[in-house]
């Protein structure tokens, strides 16, 4: 279970998060949506301890990670698979070396069992035979899928996705959405997805929050968000940039 209490974060005088709090239950797929620059990725980075809050707490499995030392945090991170927006593959390594690096660090696998896990992980994202390719030889969608394979290879209890479908064509978006759902079902993983794609929200998540000006503007199910009368929420889900302007007139 993930619990976030009253999270505040300021960068160079700009308040990005202003008292964000929510709970993600075990096995749940939780969506974080909001406009670009609303603090979604910043919030996600707090969940894995890459950023420390100015005020507030982040709990994972009853462990307060927002105040943890680096060594203790490393042990918590062993349970988390993180998929970055552009894959964040190590560009000096091949596809298989990217996955092996994670496995060698976080598991006791070696030799043929390690190779089998690499092959299995790549097969699960539909990228068999790409082991020897360098990241520079992959398309954007392939990079994201290798990023997913690297994260899923360690058999995490938590999966965090940072804008997994941004910039992809509709078919690839659907492929990634199916992968997120597949791993949630197969591995019983608690999943957090940061996105601004409503298709991903409707298709993948169980519950969603909408961040607006550093605060939670909406918290509910994808069905609830469709019925919301809140203008900020309506504007976001319809993509109508004139909605708030019309209301203020």
């Amino acid at each position: 279970m993930i619990k976030v209490n009253d999270l505040h974060k300021t960068f160079e005088g700009k308040q990005v998060l202003r008292g964000v709090g929510f709970t993600v239950n075990t096995g749940e797929t939780f969506g974080i949506i909001g406009k670009s620059g609303s603090g979604k990725s910043v919030l996600l980075k707090h969940l894995i301890g890459l950023l420390k809050p100015d005020v507030g707490e982040v709990w994972i499995d009853d462990k307060l990670i927002s105040a943890m030392s680096f060594r203790k945090l490393q042990r918590v991170r062993e349970k988390i698979g993180m998929v970055f927006q552009f894959g964040a593959l190590f560009d000096s390594m091949t596809v298989s070396e990217n996955i092996e690096l994670a496995l060698k660090k976080l598991t006791k696998l070696s030799g043929s069992s390690l190779n089998d896990r690499v092959t299995e992980s790549l097969a699960s994202v539909g990228l068999e035979g790409t082991e020897k390719l360098m990241p520079s030889e992959l398309s954007g969608g392939m990079k994201k899928r290798v990023g997913i394979a690297r994260a899923i290879a360690i058999k995490p209890e938590y999966m965090f996705y940072d804008e997994p479908t941004t910039g992809l064509d509709p078919v690839m978006t659907d492929t990634i959405n199916r992968l997120i759902k597949k791993f949630k079902t197969d591995e019983r993983i608690t999943t957090v997805v940061v996105t601004h794609e409503m298709l991903t929200v409707y298709d993948v998540v169980d519950r969603v929050i909408l961040l607006h000006e550093g605060k939670i503007q909406f918290d509910g199910t994808p069905e609830d968000i469709k019925k919301s009368d809140d203008l900020v929420v309506k504007q976001f889900i319809t993509g109508d940039s004139t909605l708030l302007l019309q209301e203020s007139r």
Binding site: K45, I48, L50, Q74, R75, R77, E78, I80, M82, F84, A88, L89, F90, L101, A102, K105, L106, I154
Partner: peptide
């Protein structure tokens, strides 16, 4: 960040 997330 990816390195850190992998506990390196």
């Amino acid at each position: 960040d990816a390195l850190e997330s992998l506990s390196f």
